[in-house]
Design a protein around this nucleic acid. Structure first.
Ligand code: ZN
Ligand code: ZN
Ligand code: ZN
Ligand code: ZN
Lengths: 136, 136
DNA sequence: TTATAAATGTTATATTATTACATAGTGTTA
DNA sequence: TAACACTATGTAATAATATAACATTTATAA
């Protein structure tokens, strides 16, 4: 009990699962201390517990950090297994964040080389604008 | 005295100029509190003075914030007058950061539209990898 | 089993950033 | 000039974000 078979397949520990579930259910990015407040009733009482789980979940590609917001969202892009190639759209009015899943974009960026011929192993892209709702 | 003609043309106030000069001279991104320690001898004594100047300089496009590092670099891209379209390469070993100035990349990203047809007015892209030095 | 690695619990602290309010300078215009 | 609005500055306090350090427990594997 506690951790089911399916959870084990996802390789999530108890704290990781609690924190992932919370982020996954949230319609908006969650900040570390918001997460902390929301999982204290489940026994997670201190920042390091939250940050450790977040770090692992990011490594696994289960969640992504929105750097410009210091907040985390669950990955809903099935092809996105690791934290290597991420792109997001962020509404500057309502703060809605959506993960962008564009083959064209990811191919373009994965193959991008700068002037020095530097090849990258990872990128993060954040677009800012107005979402549909906030545009009208 | 204190603020020269050329500085006025750049519309920098005293604190903005002091802080811009420091960042501009630095070979590496500077963090807000590193800046604070380095300008205390020049009369800037408290965090708000630093953050206010940083905010304005970012608005003007004179400096950029490297979101994944909470650090700031001077803009050396003459076509980059505002904080609207930024791309950087970051070495994960030595933490060297370079602003990428690629017409192809900026055109591609400026014209990128997601599935919902959302048009963006701003983006920030950070590439991670190994710089020339650290690769050998 | 024994060893190893991974995860957890806990306290304290470090780092990054903002609020709030008082004061001073700058430019515009009546 | 005087009045006004606007921008920038100075200062203290505090909020928000993140990590260090160390003890303990749990999971995995030899
Ligand atoms: Zn993803
Ligand atoms: Zn919106
Ligand atoms: Zn620039
Ligand atoms: Zn390097």
């Amino acid at each position: 009990m506690g951790i089911s078979k399916i959870d084990k397949m996802h390789n999530l520990s108890k704290n990781q699962q609690i924190i992932f579930d919370l982020i996954d259910k949230s319609p908006e990015p969650l900040k570390a201390y918001t997460i902390l407040y929301n999982v204290q009733k489940r026994g997670i009482k201190a920042p390091p517990q939250v940050y450790r789980a977040l770090d692992k979940l990011v490594e696994m590609g289960k969640i992504h950090k929105i750097e410009s917001r210091n907040a985390f969202i669950a990955c809903h892009n099935s092809s996105c297994q690791v934290d290597k190639a991420t792109a997001f759209s962020i509404c500057e009015v309502c703060e809605k964040v959506t993960e962008i899943s564009s083959t064209g974009l990811s191919k373009y960026l994965a193959n991008f080389k700068d002037k020095d011929g530097m090849k990258y192993n990872k990128y993060n892209l954040e677009f800012f604008g107005l979402c549909k709702k906030c545009r009208t």
